[in-house]
Amino acid sequence: MTLDPTYLEYPKRRHGYDHDLYEWSAIHARKPVFWRNNKSVAVWVCVSLEWFPITPTDTPFRAPGHMQTAYPDYRHYTARDYGNRVGVYRLLDAFAKAGMKASFATNSVIAERYPTLVADIVSAGHEIIAHSTDMNGTIATGLPVDAERALIAKSLDMLERATGTRPKGWLSIARSQSWDTPDLLKKAGVRYCCDWVNDELPYRFKNGLINLPLNHELSDRQIITVQQQSADSYAQQMRDAFEWLASEATGRILPLHVTPYIMALPYRIGALEELLIELAAQSQAWMATGGEIIDAWEAQQ
């Protein structure tokens, strides 16, 4: 058996990318960025606030963390909802102790189901980022474009109704987009998405949408759930990352992506609390929300 001759043809072998979504640019070749008061590392804490229906639809795919047993999966339904009842309040207290604001990437149905929680987040001064509708609201190529457009609009509308503010940021579930997503987000009035993990500064898609990279490698899901490391090891890794980024001396971002049902368990939350207090006290750290980072970056472009 031999391969089709077209398998050895490379029509997009050219300078730059094999797609037209964004321009090729190496970070060191760009104009340096500086954060507020000349600080070098923006520490961005982003919380994923997730509600998993006990009835997964798998259209187009099942979200990480979703139901795993035959119906009814009480175990995972409740263990995930623990994050919305208990874990998130531990996080809110930890942020208050560190004197910092975070971004909450929020499934919009949370605003309807748990209005008290969303009010508590907003009144503490944190930012709400749209994070689809619920954890059945996944996006990938194959989802009809009309359905994707409607999903994005529904998420933004619900969060705007609940908070009085239309979210400026968007995080897709599992950071998964279709070919259409950047244009649909832009047309829906979204200013930035957090899905592409290829950079350590914001950059613009060709359509004007900004990408604020939320490094999945630094997430609690990756380090604790996937790689099975301890909360102490997680905190050590974040300290090592901060130290390195601060040594690069020009504007960088340390994104801490945390999940209430993962990081806010009783035996893990202490490690995060200590870490945040320590980071907030660093002279090179600017504890910032996603929106604040985007504002600061855009002002320097």
């Binding site: 640019s25 190496a26 970070i27 187009p60 190529t141 950071r175 998964s176 592409w196 993990v197």
Partner: peptide, 23 residues
Amino acid sequence: ARPHPDVVGYSHRDHSNRVSHWR
């Protein structure tokens, strides 16, 4: 692993050329 574009798969590797090669 995912339908194209596999955003995390692709952009994770793109990090090499934009940022981490130089580091």
